[in-house]
Simulated scan of single mutants.
Amino acid sequence: MPLLSGLLYTANVKNILDLKHTKSYVAQHKTPHKRSMFGYTVIKLDQDVTYYVGWREDSMTEYSAKKGEYLTQTVGQPPEIIKSWNELRTKYKVFQNKKEVNHGTS
């Protein structure tokens, strides 16, 4: 058994761009220690989404995001739920609106 296991999260959020969304953005976290060299992908949800995150399969925590809320994600990390545009702009510097609509496969 390995001493350290990786953070697990459910397959429906491996790439948030696969989820049904109306807008997508490129962003970067405003807090220096939370910044990612890959930046963050942000989407505005067009559907309700439930996903699970945890260190082991038997200790996964459920997260639910509603239609109209935002999900942010960077490479190798589970998404973070952002409730409003104001909260998003407070935590992240939003650089670009990609103006693409993806209706997802789920």
Score class of each variant (00 low, 15 high):
81 I>N: 05
81 I>G: 00
54 G>Q: 04
54 G>T: 08
65 A>G: 04
69 E>L: 06
53 V>C: 04
81 I>H: 04
56 R>P: 01
61 T>E: 15
61 T>H: 10
57 E>H: 13
58 D>K: 00
56 R>A: 15
63 Y>Q: 04
69 E>Y: 14
71 L>F: 03
53 V>K: 08
58 D>A: 01
58 D>P: 00
75 V>D: 04
78 P>H: 08
48 D>V: 15
65 A>K: 07
55 W>K: 15
79 P>G: 06
67 K>V: 14
73 Q>H: 11
72 T>F: 06
63 Y>D: 03
73 Q>E: 11
63 Y>K: 09
64 S>F: 08
70 Y>P: 02
58 D>H: 01
81 I>V: 13
65 A>N: 03
55 W>M: 14
53 V>G: 03
68 G>Q: 05
59 S>W: 03
55 W>C: 07
60 M>F: 05
61 T>W: 01
78 P>T: 07
71 L>R: 01
59 S>E: 12
60 M>H: 05
80 E>R: 11
78 P>C: 04
47 Q>A: 14
55 W>I: 11
52 Y>R: 12
53 V>E: 10
52 Y>M: 12
70 Y>E: 02
66 K>Q: 10
65 A>S: 02
77 Q>E: 14
47 Q>H: 13
66 K>L: 10
57 E>C: 12
56 R>L: 10
72 T>C: 12
59 S>Y: 08
60 M>L: 15
49 V>G: 00
57 E>R: 14
51 Y>E: 05
65 A>T: 04
66 K>A: 07
72 T>M: 11
78 P>V: 09
51 Y>K: 01
52 Y>N: 09
66 K>V: 02
76 G>Q: 02
51 Y>S: 00
71 L>Q: 02
75 V>E: 09
72 T>D: 06
61 T>Q: 14
80 E>S: 09
79 P>F: 05
80 E>Q: 10
51 Y>P: 01
50 T>A: 13
59 S>H: 06
50 T>E: 14
52 Y>F: 15
64 S>G: 00
49 V>L: 03
71 L>T: 01
47 Q>K: 13
60 M>E: 04
49 V>T: 02
63 Y>F: 15
69 E>P: 12
50 T>D: 11
73 Q>T: 10
71 L>N: 00
78 P>G: 07
50 T>K: 08
65 A>P: 02
